[in-house]
């Protein structure tokens, strides 16, 4: 399958890239090269009170990149809905990465509040991309509420711990019809590849690049891993033999 035909579709918008970037915790000067090396088409950013002394991040985002505002900082549905409305006014687009995180220690999302906010925002025409703990029943409720994707965490935000929730994510991949985008905890390209091989539709990463020594190089490494994992998924990975072994060479015609 060529890149042009293997498209990621979110709320009616199509993308060839399956790697979504964050913009936190690194210099705005590196955003352009990170996006280029990642070949990313979507970048997420947060909303905060305006500080006139701070640089305008929008000056650092290349043309044609889709801005995916997030509701980080929201601790309940009401706050997230307000932030989403402010974000739409700012971005002029309906994309919203919905994050409802009351817990300060582990940054665990509140799945129930997330469903509530999804319902309100989807009814207002938002393309809602909710961040959740991977739970099949919640994912079904999100889809019923109008979510465009489900974004399960692989591990707590910012930890780089990898696919800690692997088996639960696999259930979502198998049972949920909207794109499953792995959102937090992916620390290394190998983990991104593994998630894509499992059938995840896309990977979102921020900290794993922001904490790398060479951010653009790590962005490239992630891009290659996401592409490799996607191709492996489409190719259909071969079977696993639990016991014994199976020779790859002919067992006849041996010269002794």
């Amino acid at each position: 399958m060529s890149e042009e035909t293997d498209l990621l579709t979110i709320g009616g918008h199509t993308f060839t890239s399956r790697f979504i970037l964050g913009s936190g915790k690194y210099s705005y000067d590196l955003i352009d090269s990170a996006i280029n090396q990642a070949k990313a088409q979507i970048i997420t950013m947060a909303l905060r009170r305006t500080d006139s002394a701070e640089e305008n991040i929008l000056n650092y985002i290349p043309e044609g990149i889709t801005i995916l505002p997030n509701t980080s900082g929201s601790t309940n549905a009401e706050e997230a809905i307000r932030t989403a409305r402010l974000a739409r006014e700012l971005s002029g687009s309906n994309f919203i990465k919905l994050e409802v995180v009351p817990d300060k220690k582990y940054l665990m999302p509140d799945n129930n509040e997330t469903v509530k906010a999804t319902e309100v925002l989807a009814n207002e025409g938002f393309i809602v991309m909710p961040y959740v703990l991977p739970d099949l029943n919640i994912a079904r409720q999100l889809v019923d509420a109008g979510a465009a994707t489900v974004m399960p965490l692989a591990a707590p935000i910012g930890t780089n711990k990898g696919l800690a929730t692997k088996d639960l994510i696999q259930i979502l991949i198998d049972e949920i019809d909207v794109p499953i985008i792995i959102d937090a905890g992916i620390g290394r390209p190998s983990e991104a590849a593994a998630a894509m091989e499992m059938g995840a539709d896309a990977i979102m990463a921020n900290t794993s690049m922001a904490t790398a020594k060479n951010i653009p190089l790590m962005a490239e490494a992630f891009r290659l891993a996401v592409e490799a994992g996607r191709k492996a998924y489409l190719a259909g990975p071969g079977r696993v033999i639990e016991h014994g072994a199976v020779a790859s060479s002919p067992l006849t015609g041996l010269s002794k």
Binding site: G24, K25, T44, R48, I57, S72, G158, D183
Partner: peptide, 11 residues
Amino acid sequence: LELISFVGGGR
């Protein structure tokens, strides 16, 4: 009055 802007932020 609240004045709000985009800033860098991942999740």
